[in-house]
């Protein structure tokens, strides 16, 4: 049983004109096995929240705390956060030229498990995970994310999640850019890991269609750098119908 606790989180970015405040006090607790959907208008700070938890160097924490099972996450380096059990599926996965997917996955698994996975079982593990996500095995030999289509990049993120087995995963618009079939395949992947690992999930999205596959326990409306309303799945339906107008004008 794991618990990610975000309390009063304030985050800014350094700009030419000084610090720009983006997150203005975010409170959120995610337990193992729970799905928290985060929905909110463009630029409201959803990715900033995701990146800040993962430790992206661009963001400066100006207040609040993030803990995983009581341990301060904000004190950890980026790789330590992953080792602690956090995973971020990025909205825009990064291309790393010249580094093959196979090499990348193996290096990551080695780092997380503390020892290199046995070659034979590992190759099988990767192959199986790829086939479940309907990824061509040829992706193994390609450079990380280089030349991948939008949908392929998202599948590759979930592939990593399946193999690296985190405790808490943040999925930043993993559904964007997926066609109907891919959406189903990716959602099934997420649900599989959730079931096997009792994964806790923060699912950032603009659309309710993914929520039909990955059932949220809680829906949070994010606007102006904080959570402005919380509810159950019905809140998502209402948002899709009415939009965010009532939250942003405030």
């Amino acid at each position: 049983m794991s618990q990610l606790v975000i309390k009063g989180l304030q985050v800014g970015v350094e700009t030419d004109s000084g610090m720009t405040e983006i997150l203005r006090g975010v409170d959120l607790t995610i337990n193992s096995g729970e799905v928290h959907a985060i929905m909110g208008p463009n630029g409201s700070g959803k990715s900033t929240l995701a990146y800040s938890i993962a430790g992206h160097p661009k963001y400066t924490i100006t207040g609040g705390s993030v803990t995983l099972d009581g341990v301060d996450v904000l004190e950890m380096s980026v790789d330590e956060r992953a080792k602690a059990g956090l995973f971020l599926a990025m909205q825009y996965p990064v291309e790393v030229p010249g580094v093959s997917v196979a090499n990348f996955l193996r290096t990551a698994a080695t780092a997380l498990r503390g020892e290199a996975p046995k070659v034979r079982t590992w190759v099988g593990e990767v192959k199986e995970a790829m086939s479940k996500l309907a990824m061509d095995p040829a992706f193994s030999e390609r450079s990380v994310n280089e030349g991948f289509s939008g949908g392929e990049k998202k599948r590759h993120e979930i592939l990593q999640m399946e193999l690296l087995k985190p405790k808490i995963a943040i999925l930043d618009e993993t559904d964007s850019g997926l066609d109907v079939d891919a959406l189903r395949i990716v959602s099934e992947g997420v649900n599989r890991v959730k079931q096997e690992q009792n994964l806790g999930i923060m699912l950032i999205t603009h659309y309710t269609r993914i929520l039909r596959y990955i059932k949220p326990d809680f829906v949070h409306v994010f606007a102006g750098g904080k959570i402005v309303e919380e509810g159950g799945p019905e809140l998502a339906e209402r948002l899709e119908e009415k939009g965010y107008a009532q939250y942003v004008k405030a």
């Binding site: 993962a54 430790g55 992206h56 160097p57 661009k58 380096s77 980026v78 790789d79 956060r81 992953a82 080792k83 995973f87 971020l88 990025m90 996965p93 990064v94 291309e95 790393v96 030229p97 010249g98 580094v99 090499n103 990348f104 290096t107 990551a108 780092a111 997380l112 450079s143 990380v144 990593q160 690296l164």
Partner: peptide, 28 residues
């Protein structure tokens, strides 16, 4: 920085991430 962040967010330590990026750069 984005490449290093991406690799490190998967648990790969900084020194190893740098080595991967450099080897990748050459490997191309």
């Amino acid at each position: 920085d984005e490449q290093l962040f991406y690799l490190m967010s998967r648990g790969i330590p900084m020194s190893e991430a740098r080595r991967l990026v450099i080897r990748g750069f050459f490997g191309e």
